[in-house]
């Protein structure tokens, strides 16, 4: 009976339209068959069927990644199934932001199949876009020979390499003329406010000394003016990093748009298991 059950599962027509409940029932029945089976190859095939069920419903969440991680690739006897699984596993791990796992699956995939296709290189670029610059560089150069649109992807390298320079210059500038460093970082209003606050508090202290209010002068000088002065330098540092983030976000957004354009022309598709 169990054999009939497993065979019927494996041969079950995959074009059946699954509702959410039917999906859950099917997942459960495959899992039950997996639990009952003693054959490692059959077990792996059942897991592949489960993954396929998810993918047919356009589900690529953490549940699918969990199933992907359960598969023992070495126990898969069919080479095509192995290759297709590794491709999908790479994409699923990437979609779940698990780049380490995605890199692992991609390495396994490229060991099995000498793939030089555009989609393979594109997936490798996506996985390594914020990490392995030399690999990404090489792949972009390779793809750019086929279509110049891939040159746009080098924007990811610009993001990695982008670093704002001369922080010290801005800090010293603010130390000499309060607020000037902040203003030069693009925050003009904040810079002017810093300058006005400092000028106002210094004027106040001078006036206090003139009126003979020495205790007030000392306390305002150490308690308020010193805080304004230190705060102005701190603000300059914050505005420097804020400006850096702003620029990086701008670069990232424009890069994501370029990537979208590339993916529209060369879509990455999952493979049927």
């Amino acid at each position: 009976m169990l054999r009939i059950f497993i065979i019927s599962l494996l041969l079950c027509n995959s074009t059946i339209v699954f509702s959410q409940n039917a999906l859950n029932d099917s997942l459960l029945s495959y899992e039950y068959a997996y639990f009952k089976s003693n054959n490692d190859t059959v077990k792996q095939m059942l897991l592949l069927k489960k993954i396929d069920l998810y993918l047919k419903q356009n589900i690529t969440d953490v549940n699918v990644l969990n199933e992907v991680n359960r598969v023992n690739v070495n126990a898969l006897t069919d080479n095509t199934a192995k290759v297709n699984f590794l491709w999908n596993a790479t994409a699923i791990a990437y979609l779940n932001n698990n780049t380490d796992r995605a890199r692992f699956f991609l390495a396994e995939y490229s060991e099995l199949k000498k793939d030089t296709s555009v989609t393979f290189n594109l997936l490798a670029i996506l996985i390594n876009k914020y990490a392995d610059t030399s690999d990404v560089n090489k792949r972009i150069a390779y793809l750019a020979n086929k279509d110049t649109v891939f040159k746009d992807l080098s924007c990811f390298l610009d993001i990695i390499n982008y670093n704002r320079k001369h922080l010290k210059f801005y800090l010293i500038s603010s130390a000499i003329i309060p607020g000037s460093g902040t203003a030069m970082n693009g925050y003009v209003f904040k810079g002017i406010t810093s300058l006005a606050l400092m000028a106002g508090s210094v004027y106040g202290i001078i006036k206090m000394v003139e009126y003979g209010l020495y205790i007030n002068a000392v306390l305002w000088g150490t308690g308020v003016s010193l805080k304004f002065y230190a705060g102005n330098i701190k603000l300059t540092q914050q505005s420097f990093y804020k400006a850096e983030d702003k620029k990086k976000n701008k670069l990232t957004n424009s890069c994501e748009l370029k990537l979208k354009n590339v993916l529209n022309r060369y879509p990455l598709t999952l493979k049927g298991l």
């Binding site: 009939i4 059950f5 019927s8 079950c12 027509n13 059946i16 029932d25 459960l28 029945s29 039950y32």
Partner: peptide
């Protein structure tokens, strides 16, 4: 038939 046997088995088991 196979699909039916699968559903039948599924019902019996669960």
């Amino acid at each position: 038939k196979q699909v039916n046997s699968f559903i039948l088995f599924f019902c019996v088991v669960f």
